[in-house]
């Protein structure tokens, strides 16, 4: 089995650095790509949808970001190529504790998880489990 690829979309470099360490030490993946906002992520995903094998397995997506926020990215993905929605496990990773945000996330059927910061070891275990079960069912 190939090593899973992880997209980390967050405007806060500190969070990205810390999260990367956690992703690596938890054993989820060592292939972590940093993206600063929704637009960067969108461009990258669109590019990779041409070569679907290179699409990430997991995308951890922040909501409050400049330029293009998480919701705006999800709206774009809704209209975009279906292989992105099918192949990439999208987990929202936000500091928001507003119930509206959680409710809004439920309106997207291609979202696989909703994690509230801080990111913990327990969250990592869940992510790994979620990824494994998705992989075993599709392979």
């Amino acid at each position: 089995m190939n090593e899973p690829k992880v997209f980390l979309v967050d405007d806060d470099f500190i969070f990205r650095e810390v999260a990367e360490v956690m992703i690596k030490t938890s054993g989820l993946s060592t292939a972590v790509t940093h993206l600063e906002n929704g637009l960067e992520a969108y461009n990258k995903l669109l590019e990779l949808s041409e070569t679907p094998l290179e699409l990430p397995d997991v995308m951890l997506l922040d909501i409050n970001m400049p330029v293009m926020n998480g919701w705006e990215l999800l709206e774009e993905l809704k209209m975009g190529p279906s292989n992105i929605r099918d192949q990439v496990q999208i987990h929202i990773l936000t500091s928001s504790i507003a119930p509206e945000d959680l409710n809004l996330s439920k309106t997207y059927n291609f979202i696989n998880g909703y994690i509230t910061k801080p990111l913990t070891d327990a969250d990592m275990e869940k992510l790994i489990f979620s990824l494994r079960s998705a992989r075993s069912s599709s392979h």
Binding site: I14, F15, M22, S95, I97, K117
Partner: peptide, 9 residues
Amino acid sequence: RSNSSNLSM
């Protein structure tokens, strides 16, 4: 929260 969660992590 983003800063405090950073700190806690």
